[in-house]
Design a protein around this nucleic acid. Structure first.
Length: 137
DNA sequence: TAGGCCATCTGGTCCT
DNA sequence: AGGACCAGATGGCCTA
């Protein structure tokens, strides 16, 4: 990907600074459409507003399931935000993408934590090996 | 304009 | 039966 090749090398210990100037990040296109177009649902063929209104018990179940799924994904994103917040040396405006966050955390755990642990335990002979990353995920 | 990223919807599957 | 989880599909925004 462009972002990965230009800004983030998963083999680097830390990613380069990545600017994500998106004031609307966190708001889905669907929600933005709802706000901006006030009922004009063109262009969102799968959006809730343009879907056939589901009625009956099946429709109610589907809407509840959608709600739960939205909530579940928001929780997942909150967890990712929490992870981002504890990763070291990240400038304010350098919000990592999801995949970058996971890779960065993995590298951080694998190298920094493992090396520190190795040194602390006096296992210095293992430290050079820790710099050889296991296969990429 | 293509490609990356993202939020959301949806149906399937598994679990309680 | 209902909830959690997952993956595919879709469409909008952003950047090079």
């Amino acid at each position: 990907s462009r972002r990965e090749t230009d800004n983030f090398n998963p083999h680097l210990m830390y990613p380069k600074v990545i600017c994500v100037p998106d004031a609307l990040r966190g708001f889905s296109p669907t929600l933005r459409n709802r706000v901006n177009e006030a009922g004009d649902t063109s262009g969102d063929s799968r959006g809730q507003l343009q879907r056939k209104p589901q009625s009956g018990q099946r429709g109610r179940r589907r809407m509840k399931a959608n709600d739960r799924e939205r909530h579940r994904m928001h929780n997942l994103n909150s967890a990712l935000d929490a992870l981002r917040s504890i990763l070291p040396a990240l400038p304010e405006d350098a919000k990592l993408t999801k995949i970058e966050t996971l890779r960065f955390a993995r590298n951080y755990i694998w190298v920094d934590v493992a090396v520190c642990a190795g040194v602390a335990l006096g296992m210095t002979e293992l430290v050079p090996q820790l710099h050889n990353h296991p296969s990429e995920v």
